[in-house]
Simulated scan of single mutants.
Amino acid sequence: MLRQGLPSQSLVREFGAPGPRVGGVPDFHAVTRDHVLSAIAECDERGADSFQRAYGFGKTHDYLLWHDGKSYDSKAILGVAYKYATGTAASRARFAAEKEGVANLLRHLEFDVTFVDATGLADQPATGEWREAADLPLDESRDAWAEAARGGLIETAGQYHAVVTTKELATLAQNRTGIRTKQLTHYWIGDVLTRVAAECARRDEPLLSSLCVTTDGSVGASYAPAVLAATGEVPADADDHAAQERLRCYRHFGADLPEGGGVAALTPKLAATRGRERKIRAQEKVHAHCPICNLQLPATGICDDCN
């Protein structure tokens, strides 16, 4: 049964008493549970990254809102829930000094909200309590993480040209399964992505592992082994192969594609890096010179002055 009636005194202190406010300050007591559910549905439809960018919220967050086993940025959801309540979304700046207040208000509406530490892990995961990977058989933790990662990657595939970093995916897998580890991500995420790729191959799907990239925008060293495990072949260029697989993922998992079906693309960061590298190689290229006047030869290879 949902709690109805007057808000608690703590919420009144944090957000003010119900009713119209002056000076343009939002009254969050206009927000109901249904408004929050509408914001969650919009986030699911648009994808978290697109949703947060559209309303001016970044990826950093102090509290996670949990619903149906998925986590959401509590401030972004409440800000957009305010739009459903009043017609105008609350801006990110509105929450600058009210991090805990946001969590308390959402809890008042009977949502689960957990604090996120500096590593991105919630103080309480979706399962209710943490288990340590070191206390479990390796396959149990890795299979659980792979299943959770697969779900997160399918969500990513729903947005054209979206990707997720290895750190973000590792955090998601731990938060959703309630299994955490003190091991550095690069020691285990490759195995998880290989298991995801193997499951994709079993289902005759494009490789979701292609959507996971490092901070430099590359799929990194873990991608080629995942492709090998899934297809029996090693890609000549891992990032070019991943770009093609990502396009297949967007098409397969229902992303809104531009006219023509979209194009395969490197991540913007990696594309920029490769562009700089090509420019440097071109500048370092040794140019031929005329044996008579020693001037640099044009592209034709024939000296304009001596011939």
Score class of each variant (00 low, 15 high):
Ala89Met: 04
Thr171Ile: 07
Thr177Lys: 00
Arg202Val: 00
Arg203His: 08
Leu2Cys: 10
His108Ile: 03
Arg180Asp: 10
Val163His: 04
Thr185Ala: 14
Leu136Phe: 10
Lys285Phe: 05
Val113Gln: 05
Phe28Ser: 11
Ser91Asn: 04
Ala243Leu: 00
Asp112Lys: 06
Cys293Phe: 01
His287Ala: 08
Ala41Tyr: 09
Glu168Lys: 12
Asn175Cys: 01
Leu106Gln: 12
Ala265Phe: 07
Lys285Asp: 08
Ile154Val: 14
Ala54Asn: 05
Pro7Asn: 12
Phe95Cys: 03
Phe51Trp: 05
Pro125His: 00
Arg251Tyr: 09
Ala149Met: 08
Ala41Ser: 15
Gly24Gln: 00
Ala41Cys: 09
Gly275His: 12
His29Ala: 10
Asp256Asn: 15
Thr88Cys: 08
Glu155Leu: 06
Ala255Leu: 03
Ala157Lys: 06
Ser141Leu: 07
His61Ile: 08
Gly275Thr: 11
Arg251Phe: 09
Leu172Thr: 10
Glu199Leu: 05
Ser50Thr: 12
Asp305Lys: 15
Ala242Lys: 05
Leu208Phe: 09
Ile40Arg: 14
Leu37Ser: 04
Glu277Cys: 05
Ser74Ala: 15
Thr156Trp: 08
Ser141Trp: 15
Leu109Gln: 12
Ile154His: 15
Arg202Ile: 02
Gly152Pro: 03
Leu153Asn: 08
Leu295Gln: 14
Leu228Gln: 13
Asp305Gln: 14
Leu136Cys: 02
Cys43Ile: 06
Gly261Arg: 01
Lys75Tyr: 11
Val22Cys: 03
Cys303Glu: 06
Pro298Asp: 12
Leu266Thr: 08
Gly260Asn: 02
Thr86Gly: 12
Ser74Leu: 11
Glu14Cys: 09
Ile189Lys: 15
His35Val: 06
Cys249Lys: 06
Phe253Gln: 00
Gln159Trp: 09
Thr165Val: 02
Asp191Tyr: 13
Asp216Arg: 10
Pro298His: 09
Gln283Val: 07
Gly190Gln: 08
Ser222Met: 15
Gln174Ile: 09
Ala89Ile: 02
Ala122Trp: 12
Pro258Glu: 01
Tyr82Ile: 05
Ser71Glu: 10
Leu295Ile: 13
Gln183Phe: 15
Ala97Ile: 07
Asp240Gln: 10
Thr181Met: 09
Thr88Pro: 08
Gly178Tyr: 03
